[in-house]
C-alpha cells in the first residue's frame, strides 16, 4: 500500500478527507469530509480517481516541527470499513482541488480542471 498505488475506485469505496494538526484540536472543525463513491456518476468517480492518482507526485507530510497542519486522505471499503489507501499531505502542498473537495464535498468534482 505505497503512496503511489491509488486503488481503482469502485462504488463500494468511501473517501474521507480531514484537515489535521494546528495549534489546538477543535472537535467541531475536525470532522472529515466523506465522499461516497456510490453517489458519484461514473464520470465523477473516474475524475476523482484521476485526481487522486496525481497525488503520487506530492510528498508525504513532514514530521518535523509542531502544530503544523496537514490533510489526511483515507480510502476505505464502506462494507467492511477497512482502509485500503491513506496519504498525509502538508497543508501548503495540498493542490487546490483537494482543498475544494475538503471544503465543498463532491460538488468540487463538477469542475474539470484540477490544476486551478
Amino acid at each position: 500500500m505505497s503512496r503511489v498505488d491509488v486503488p481503482l475506485l469502485s462504488h463500494d469505496m468511501r473517501l474521507a478527507i480531514s484537515r489535521e494538526g494546528g495549534f489546538a484540536y477543535l472537535p467541531g472543525l475536525a470532522a472529515p469530509r466523506e465522499i461516497e463513491c456510490e453517489r458519484l456518476s461514473d464520470d465523477k468517480c473516474a475524475r476523482l480517481g484521476e485526481w487522486l492518482s496525481r497525488l503520487a507526485n506530492v510528498p508525504e507530510a513532514s514530521t518535523t516541527g509542531a502544530d503544523r497542519r496537514c490533510f489526511r486522505l483515507t480510502l476505505s471499503s464502506r462494507r467492511t470499513g477497512e482502509a485500503c489507501w491513506q496519504r498525509r499531505l502538508d497543508e501548503p502542498c495540498a493542490p487546490a482541488w483537494l482543498v475544494r473537495l475538503w471544503r465543498d464535498g463532491e460538488s468540487a468534482l463538477d469542475e474539470d480542471d484540477p490544476a486551478t
Partner: peptide, 28 residues
C-alpha cells in the same frame, strides 16, 4: 473556509494502517 461539523462519523481506519503510519513517522 472551515468545514462545518456536518459529518460526525469518524474514519474507520484499521490498526494496520495506523501502525504503518506510526512506523513511518518514527523512521522519518
Amino acid at each position: 473556509g472551515f468545514m462545518p461539523p456536518h459529518v460526525l462519523e469518524r474514519v474507520a481506519a484499521q490498526g494496520s494502517v495506523r501502525l504503518r503510519r506510526c512506523a513511518q513517522q518514527t523512521l522519518e
